[in-house]
């Protein structure tokens, strides 16, 4: 068991490093950076929805909170290390409070979706209405619909004048994503993760076993928000501006679409969905023949109709079938691995 786990980590690092090195030869690093940021955001929802069964319509709220928390504190601190931590802590703390309210209030399913969605829209409306000069946090103006530009971007810790940008930003984001992925892998392999999956499957049974479902869901929700916050901070560094659009309805919906298309219940699916659909959107943005949203919508409909489990699970099951024909005895193992994502 232990040995297997180490082998899995090694595989992830090997494949991850290979991808980090190889990808820039296919796509420019500027575009890649934002794709990886979105992949991290997709992974955050993939974790809480796919493994915890918490359908959160408001993952964009944590993403936006992370971005704003970074921008505001970066202006105030004039360096980036502490702001990066704040960008993780603020959304996490907010999620802990929101999650506790929802889960201890026994809200589930559709109500949870509605509340998280409404929270996102409240942020959106509020941030849009902060154009006046009276909306200041420290020396940072919130700037309303214009957003916050001109904050200190990522620098080498301790050296505010050494900026991390361009190719270096890509590598930092990529390594961060790899670390987050390892963290998620470790979490899901741990008792905490297995219990979370149990809760996804049956809350009644898990509480009859003696698990405090409310507390566990709150913790998982918080972890998801922390990851979303981190990706928000990286987004802020990439875009060098944060705007209320981060909290918008399309942004929220998109994250959910990434997860559905990529494949829920896997770790890789939501990342592939996020990066893939964003890249497609980017490519489509360069032409004016067809509308972007039309294609995204079409893809979603096609997936729901023909590949309801998503891209990655479909590929895995096809690959599994092909391999079975060649090599029967190993099938069980493969299918089981696939099921574990």
């Amino acid at each position: 068991m232990r040995g297997n786990q180490w082998r899995e980590y090694l595989w992830i690092v090997a494949v991850g490093v290979a991808l980090i090195v190889a990808l820039p030869s296919a796509i420019d690093t500027y575009t890649l950076t934002v794709l990886l940021v979105y992949a991290m955001l997709g992974l955050s929802l993939g974790l809480i929805w796919g493994f915890g069964g918490i359908l959160c319509f408001g993952q964009a709220a944590f993403f936006g909170l992370g971005a704003y928390a970074y921008a505001i504190s970066a202006i105030n601190f004039g360096e980036s290390t502490i702001p990066m931590l704040i960008a993780i802590i603020v959304p996490a703390a907010f999620a802990a409070i929101l999650g506790a309210m929802m889960f201890y209030g026994r809200l589930a399913d559709v109500y949870l979706g509605v509340i998280t969605l409404v929270v996102t829209l409240i942020f959106y409306r509020f941030m849009n209405s902060t154009a006046g000069p009276e909306y200041m946090i420290g020396s940072a103006r919130l700037g309303g619909f214009n957003g916050i530009p001109g904050f200190q971007t990522l620098n080498v810790p301790g050296y505010p004048d050494f900026y991390v940008w361009g190719d270096s930003l890509y590598y930092v984001v990529a390594v961060a994503l790899l670390l987050v992925f390892l963290l998620v892998t470790w979490l899901l392999g741990s008792s905490f993760g297995r219990i979370a999956v149990g809760i996804r499957e049956s809350e009644t049974r898990m509480s009859l076993m003696g698990y405090d479902v409310r507390a566990r869901k709150t913790v998982l929700f918080t972890v998801g928000a922390a990851i979303a916050g981190l990706s928000g901070a990286f987004f802020a560094n990439w875009a060098e501006i944060v705007t209320p659009g981060l909290f918008s309805l399309p942004q929220s919906a998109e994250i959910i679409i990434w997860c559905i298309v990529g494949g829920l219940g896997t770790r890789i699916g939501p990342m592939v969905g996020a990066a893939g659909l964003s890249y497609l959107k980017f490519l489509l943005g360069q032409q004016s023949l067809v509308d972007n949203t039309l294609i995204t919508g079409l893809i979603l409909v096609l997936f729901v109709l023909f590949l309801p489990r998503g891209l990655v699970p479909a590929i895995v099951s096809v690959a599994g079938r092909v391999l079975t024909r060649r090599n029967r005895p190993s099938r069980r193992l493969r299918v089981r691995r696939a099921a574990n994502g």
Binding site: R200, E201, T204, R205, L208, M209, G210, Y211
Partner: peptide, 24 residues
């Protein structure tokens, strides 16, 4: 008390409709 608190005392419950984790 909540079900998980009662269960934690050492009480095992089998529900009418089998409540098991189907996907596991």
């Amino acid at each position: 008390w909540h079900p998980h608190e009662i269960a934690s005392l050492g009480v095992g419950v089998k529900t009418q409709v089998p409540s098991v984790m189907d996907g596991l």
